[in-house]
Nucleic acid binder design. Structure first.
Lengths: 200, 200, 200, 200
DNA sequence: TGCTAATCGAGACGGTACGTCAAGTCTTAAG
DNA sequence: CTTAAGACTTGACGTACCGTCTCGATTAGCA
């Protein structure tokens, strides 16, 4: 069995430079935003030549995608026994992630890239929406416990909650606390809005 | 009685230039996107000097906001007699508006600007979400007809439907037709997801 | 007999504007120099619209020529009885005229325009070299008095004295007083430099 | 022993660009003149980015000074055995140098800059008046040969001849050939203009 | 120990677009 | 018809970054 990693000749790439570049990218992304962030500024901040960046990434998007991807996030799937309790925890976590400068910039990035560069949007999206699986697990368990109807499409619920979360977050950042809004949405979803919807 | 309109001294601004600038801006916005669109290109396309643009707008954002704001959109409030019918019409209209290059760019613009320049986001938003009032009227009538519970917050419904609409539009552009998705969402909302949600 | 001056219909040109423009031009010419002097600055300084200037002059050169031409200079032809005395007076006057900011700028203007726009150079030149006729008269009288050889070309003497005056003025502004230099030159000219030039 | 030449880090400046810039500058100076010559045009003509010019020079004056300074001129000191012969050769050379578009522009530049930026004027002047030392040598030899009085200030003679040369060149470009004028001046100087100038 | 080769920092390269300034022309209302 | 005011097109200014390209200096593995 040969080594899967063939050591190339020549000087190996500097791991320190790798780290410095990613860190400088994240810092500047949070500080200045994606558009205002210049490669030259990143290189200067990282104490690195521009070449060293261009050797690794062919575009700013690639660089930012890798920088965001390098962020470690661990999210234990909550299990409080009730849907309400689990959602509470997920909401709290999501809020903490998003209400940082970096989180806002990432969100902006996701959506502005979504229409033009879907492949990059998906990278950002994957990192940003890591909680998705946790959310699914929570809903699944609630369904098994009988808190949610059996025939309901869980993905649709996810769309609804996540979408409304964004919607209110983006356009009414000054209004009621996010947690309250989520609670009202969940309540509405559970009860339904139809006047004659009780199957009796 | 003095004139309410004080005519300023000097040559008045050219209305033709106004129009040419706005049109060129919209064209290039649709063609190239906000970022790739240069003021010089707009000036060239409009057959106008750069100064003439800079005299009117201090930033690209202002210019684009005004250009989008100049778009006239008339949306008659539908009244088919049923909530389903009205929503169908609204959805069709919204889809038509958004599924154009200009619509996509506007959406990207709204969200990427939202976190950094809320005041501009609101301008874009206002224009983009003009159907909002129509949507409210439709829901209100449905409530009066008894199709929707009386004690439900209509704004919350709007958040949910609009948000889920975006959500699926942005991240699953290739999946099922938008109209179908909206139908499923409405159905879910009307029935509710709670297993034991019989009210009273 | 009709009036030789036909009073044109409409508002007559403002003499105040005329004066203000010329004065502002001279001021700015002395302060900033010909190149750095903008028409807009002249208009602003004169409290006049740009149009008012362009209606009168078609170029900066014309304007400056007229402004310099408007300067009144009276130079009485000196008659002290000796060539030395007359030259002394002329030198003093020339020095006073040239050693002002306006004088320096005029000189610069004359020469930099000379090669490209000879017709303007001549206008400046005429004003600047008004003393020329006085100089000629002085030399003529000296010739008649027998101070200068009869067969000498007076114009050539003028070229020599005026040229050397410039030469030293432009390239050695810091050296000996101008008057001394002129004296040395005159002395040299009178005596000649040839070792065997005395006709015996 | 350390190297006296410390090689700076980074890519060294391109000697080709240096040359192209200087050549383009001289070309455009001769064609269009100092004022009408734009940095952008120089860059375009040299096939070089504007930055490459601005990296080297902070002003047009600096650039032009360097360009003129880069002109190599070799002038052998003539030695025909007589003052008249030597002057003839010097005059011919000076005429050839000045009677080119570049020569005229340089002259205009020297004088228009002289009063405002003496330091630049001196650079131009040095290049332009390179023959000065040759002229001095020629006069010195003539003095030793006895063609010129011993007690005459040679510098003053230079002022007179050079000044009158300019004077006639600038204001009477259309008149008699330069060489004839110089001959008349030299003759006048050698003989003197004084009627009773017999020394001793 | 020396050779080979990819890497490093630094920074110059040809470009594009920026936002500013002044040029000379034009269009208004007021005189 | 001129005036002051100011908008118009044009074009150069000097700056900031782009992505590419040299440099001399490292820094490994291979000979």
């Amino acid at each position: 069995m040969n080594q899967p990693v063939k050591s190339l000749p020549g000087r190996p790439r500097s791991a320190e430079a790798d780290q410095a570049i990613l860190q400088a990218t994240l810092d500047l992304l949070a500080e200045a935003g994606y558009q205002s962030m210049s490669i030259e500024a990143i290189a200067a901040r990282a104490g690195v030549g521009k070449t060293t960046i261009y050797r690794r990434y062919t575009s700013k998007e690639e660089l930012v995608a890798d920088a965001l991807g390098s962020l470690k996030q661990e999210l234990p799937i909550p299990d409080t026994g009730t849907l309400w309790g689990d959602i509470e925890i997920l909401t709290e976590h999501a809020t903490k992630t998003i209400l940082t400068p970096l989180g806002r910039q990432t969100l902006a990035l996701i959506i502005s890239t979504a229409s033009s560069n879907p492949q990059f949007a998906k990278v950002y999206w994957k990192k940003y929406m890591q909680p998705r699986s946790a959310f699914f697990a929570v809903l699944k368990r609630a369904q098994e416990r009988g808190e949610i109807k059996e025939n309901v499409d869980i993905e649709l619920i996810y769309d609804l909650m996540s979408g409304s979360f964004w919607h209110s977050f983006i356009f009414k950042p000054e209004s009621e606390p996010v947690a309250d809004h989520v609670r009202r949405v969940l309540s509405l979803l559970l009860e339904g809005i139809g006047a004659c919807s009780n199957p009796k």
